[in-house]
């Protein structure tokens, strides 16, 4: 009787994780792709040297997001710990978090009216064992508008 309850609850949680987690992931990816297309015009660079010397203003911009992984992903990750190998269930999690954080940074820069974002850096940290937080940092610059 005990075995049935234990197995049953694990399977239910896995199913919930798979269905709802998968759905929320697909929705998130759609939104990410949308916003990336819109913000494609704003260049993002990791270099620290500026090509243009006529700068009007500078602003530190950041974007961050904390995402939790669903039950199925965590379960698979724990099992993978036994055998080793590529943990593909977490790859999409990291990818989404990174792109989301970057988009939020670009969003902040675009709202400020930036022409470019340079000195771009990404940082990762973990939350509560199976969630991650990504922080994207950059310097937004406004070029001097040449008046004719």
């Amino acid at each position: 009787m005990n075995g049935l309850v234990e197995w049953g609850s694990v399977l239910v949680l896995l199913a919930v994780g798979f269905v709802f987690g998968g759905r929320s992931e697909r929705r998130h990816y759609k939104s990410i792709q949308n916003r990336e297309t819109k913000l494609l015009a704003l260049p993002l660079k990791s270099e620290t040297k500026l090509q243009v010397s006529e700068i009007e203003d500078v602003l530190l911009v950041t974007g961050s997001v904390a995402i939790a992984s669903d039950y199925l992903k965590t379960f698979i990750a724990n099992l993978k710990n036994i055998f080793g190998g590529r943990l593909s269930s977490f790859e999409s999690l990291m990818d989404r978090a990174r792109r989301e954080a970057t988009l939020r940074l670009k969003d902040q820069a675009a709202k400020w009216g930036a022409d470019e974002v340079i000195g771009f850096r990404l940082e990762t940290s973990t939350i509560r064992q199976n969630g991650i937080e990504i922080l994207a940092v950059g310097t937004a610059v406004k070029f001097k508008k040449l008046s004719t």
Binding site: F18, G22, L79, I82, F83, M94
Partner: peptide
Amino acid sequence: NVSKSHPLIDLAFLLGGV
């Protein structure tokens, strides 16, 4: 950056191994 493997297939292999 994201592998194309389906999580349920992954799970099936892992459970089999376990």
